[in-house]
Each structure stands twice: as structure tokens, then as C-alpha cells.
């Protein structure tokens, strides 16, 4: 009998302690929620707080864990840019983030690449995102990548891209030329050298460059940027063609068409995709807007095509 009582007592004790654990965890979770509501909001400037360690010091202190530390700085760079992008309401493209005040991005990428100089993705990110923030740092980090990885032709492609953006076509041509000499570099690097030299500012060169970037990059954000830039170039070509049509119509009829319907037969003849109201569609499927007053074609505000 006493054994039975003892067993019951033990069971009650187990149940009671289990309840204390479960209820205690629930109470702790509720308290955390309460504290979250009472605690003053985090300092919005904390995200931009200067790094405590530079790359060389971080590498020295990493005790052989430098690869993991580089991964951490790389992921921190992505999170840093991601948080800034989320904080602005408008649609942004990663090669034009100057309005986001990304002052910590260069030190983060510099530290990641100093910790692991063979880690190529941060160099690519620096070449794409940094020029809008600090072009000298973008060039410095990419050149550092070339010094550490002299056989990585992609880094020459990325440095050439930075020079092209700066409209320094001569430097871009030279960079593509040096990259083309590397064993294993694709033949288009040599072609790009010639294009940069002869016709660096043309839309065809831009198209070729973004096409290669889209093909070569493993980074989703970079591929998305290249895709959107290619759509923008397509849209620019379409708008030029539409302007020509409008000018031809105006020259023939003596006035600008009041609606796209008046050009419907022409669109059909050249196979331009249109919506139900005969408005031509941009590459993202949004209808172009006709400004009949000035005989001009404009992007639809709902369109995903990049304006700048």
C-alpha cells in the first residue's frame, strides 16, 4: 500500500514539475512579448554603426575560421542591403541604390574579401552595387580581387562593367582586353574589348554586357538586375520605334493620333503585341501611354520597366 502511495506521489511530482516547465516557458514567452512592447525602439542608426574590426585584424583574430567569418560578413552585407531596400517604399534596382545611404557596404565587402580573398561573390556584388554608393571603393575592391585571383576572368568583366558605367570606355576596353588574355576566358571578352573601344556608349554594347552578366552570374539579385536592364533596353527600342510611327502618322495625316486605335493596322502589320484597346504593350505586358498633345509615348506607371 505504501508502495502504491509512493508511486502515486512520484507520478504527481512528475506531472507537477512538467506543468511548472510548460507553464514557466509560456510565462517567459509572454513576458518577452510584454518587454518588447515596453522597450524603447532600437536606434535606427545602429544598422550603420562602424565596424569594430578592419579586414586584416578580423583575419588575424579568426584563428583559422576565416572562411566562416567571411561567410558571416558576406551574409551580413546581403542582410544590410536587403533591410535598406525593404525600408524604402519605391521599387529599386540593385545597381542604383545611391539613395539608400549604404555607407557600411564597402567595409563589409572589404572585410569579407580580406578574410577570404578567393571568395568571388562579394567582388561581384561590390562591382554591381557599390558604384552607385562609392565608385572608388568599388574599383579598389574589384582590383583587390584581381590581385588575389589573377586567373578569374569574371573579375575583369566586373571591373570593365564599373568603368563602362563611369563612361570610361577606354579603361573598360583595356580591362576586357586583359581579361581576354586569361586562359579559359570566353571569346566574347575579346569582342567586348573591341565594342567598348569603338562603340562603348551604344545600346548594343549595353545589351551585350547585361546579357553576359545574366548568363554568367550565379547571384539571383544580379541576374534579376541584368534581366530588368535588358527589358529596359527592349522598351527603349520599342519606344523609339513607336515615336517613329507617331512621327510618320503626323507627317502623313497632319495631326497626332488621338488614340492608339488609329495605329492599330500598323501594329498588326509589324506584329506589335497590343491590348484590347489597341495600346502597344511593353516587355512586361503593361500598355504604353499615348500623350497625343505632344505626340509622345510614355511608360505606364504600372509598368515594371526601370525608368532611370
Amino acid at each position: 500500500m505504501s508502495d502504491l502511495k509512493q508511486a502515486q506521489h512520484d507520478r504527481m511530482k512528475t506531472i507537477s514539475l512538467g506543468l511548472v516547465v510548460v507553464v514557466g516557458i509560456a510565462c517567459a514567452a509572454l513576458l518577452v512579448r510584454w518587454i518588447d512592447t515596453v522597450r524603447p525602439p532600437a536606434d535606427p542608426n545602429a544598422i550603420d554603426e562602424r565596424l569594430y574590426l578592419d579586414g586584416k585584424t578580423a583575419r588575424r583574430m579568426s584563428l583559422g575560421f576565416n572562411g566562416l567569418a567571411a561567410d558571416w560578413y558576406w551574409m551580413r552585407s546581403l542582410q544590410y542591403v536587403g533591410r535598406k531596400i525593404i525600408s524604402v517604399p519605391e521599387d529599386v534596382v540593385i545597381d542604383d541604390l545611391h539613395q539608400l545611404n549604404l555607407k557600411l557596404l564597402a567595409p563589409l565587402l572589404d572585410t569579407a574579401t580580406t578574410l577570404d580573398p578567393q571568395f568571388l561573390d562579394p567582388y561581384e556584388y561590390a562591382a554591381i552595387v557599390l558604384p552607385a554608393v562609392d565608385v572608388q571603393e568599388a574599383i579598389r575592391i574589384t582590383q583587390k580581387g584581381i590581385e588575389a585571383n589573377p586567373n578569374a576572368w569574371r573579375l575583369y568583366h566586373q571591373l570593365g562593367y564599373i568603368y563602362w558605367q563611369q563612361q570610361n570606355y577606354q579603361a573598360a576596353s583595356e580591362t576586357y582586353g586583359r581579361g581576354a588574355q586569361i586562359p579559359g576566358a570566353p571569346s566574347w571578352m575579346e569582342a567586348m574589348k573591341a565594342k567598348m573601344s569603338a562603340d562603348g556608349g551604344s545600346r548594343a554594347t549595353a545589351r551585350e554586357l547585361y546579357m553576359r552578366m545574366y548568363e554568367q552570374s550565379a547571384e539571383d539579385q544580379v541576374r534579376d538586375m541584368a534581366r530588368r536592364r535588358l527589358l529596359q533596353l527592349d522598351s527603349l527600342d520599342q519606344r523609339d520605334a513607336l515615336r517613329k510611327l507617331l512621327n510618320a502618322y503626323q507627317a502623313r495625316v497632319g495631326k497626332c493620333p488621338s488614340s492608339w486605335k488609329e495605329l492599330d493596322h500598323l501594329f498588326r502589320a509589324v506584329g506589335t503585341p497590343t491590348d484590347a484597346s489597341s495600346a502597344p504593350l511593353d516587355p512586361t505586358g503593361a500598355a504604353y501611354i499615348l500623350k497625343s498633345g505632344v505626340c509622345e509615348v510614355e511608360l505606364n506607371p504600372k509598368s515594371e520597366i526601370i525608368v532611370k
Binding site: 572562411g67 566562416l68 567571411a70 561567410d71 558576406w74 551574409m75 546581403l78 542582410q79 571568395f119 561573390d121 556584388y125 550565379a218 547571384e219 539571383d220 539579385q221
Partner: peptide, 13 residues
């Protein structure tokens, strides 16, 4: 989180 670098991160980690 790693922007397509999961293999490198897994080996490092």
C-alpha cells in the same frame, strides 16, 4: 541567407 553560396557556407560551417 547566403545568396546562392550554401555549398561554401556548409563546408566552412
Amino acid at each position: 541567407l547566403s545568396g546562392g553560396q550554401e555549398r561554401k557556407v556548409i563546408v566552412d560551417l
